[in-house]
Design a protein around this nucleic acid. Structure first.
Lengths: 101, 101
DNA sequence: CAGGCATATAACCGGTAGGGCATGTTCAGA
DNA sequence: TCTGAACATGCCCTACCGGTTATATGCCTG
């Protein structure tokens, strides 16, 4: 879990994810949009890929990257442990639903 | 936003939050539970405090720390931008499982 | 008010992460 | 098969981060 946060705790990587959120993207397009060197972008993409946030497919000479949903689902699950802190109403609702069963 | 993730991208700080999730806690109690030096714990608490994840009140010679909900709400909000990605994923998974039957 | 406890801060150090440059690798097209 | 495009990787350097030790601060207690 800490690994996922460490991956997201980097401005360039967050920007990459925001770009990929709209549509999948080649490395070159990301380089243009981020104004960073191509090796730097590739390194970040590698980190994101090894953490499962993105995957790539090969199209000719290009690598097309896209977002993968699983790590986000894990974040959601982690966050749920803390949700009752700021949404006690939802917590009460959960107890209500539990009692329904 | 990236700041919040950077704060969470550290094992000791996540452990601190998990301890505080159950109940508020003094620095000394955290030192005992984490098996770390007191200055290290204080440094992490400072980072967490400046990021808004925790707040402290003074009780005699002790500082009692507790979780603050706002940053978690911001995480929730950030995650919502990506939620539809894994909602679709879950939908696809369900359809896949349905087809299995 | 002196002493001790709980915590914060300072100074320092070793590891590591991010950036750039140079280079390797793969593939399309002439 | 040769060339160039697109991307990955290796290497180096610098900056920052987390940890420890030592010290400062603030508050109870005798």
């Amino acid at each position: 879990m800490v690994g996922a946060f460490a991956v997201l705790g980097e401005a360039s990587r967050l920007r990459i994810l925001e770009h990929l959120r709209g549509a999948e993207c080649s490395v070159g397009e990301l380089v243009d949009r981020l104004g960073m060197s191509q090796p730097a972008v590739s390194k970040h993409l590698r980190v994101l890929r090894e953490a499962g946030f993105v995957s790539s497919r090969i199209a000719a000479q290009q690598r097309i990257y896209r977002i993968e949903p699983e790590p986000f689902a894990e974040l959601e699950h982690w966050l749920a442990q803390y949700r009752r802190l700021w949404d006690r109403h939802l917590d009460a609702l959960e107890r209500h639903l539990d009692n329904q069963e």
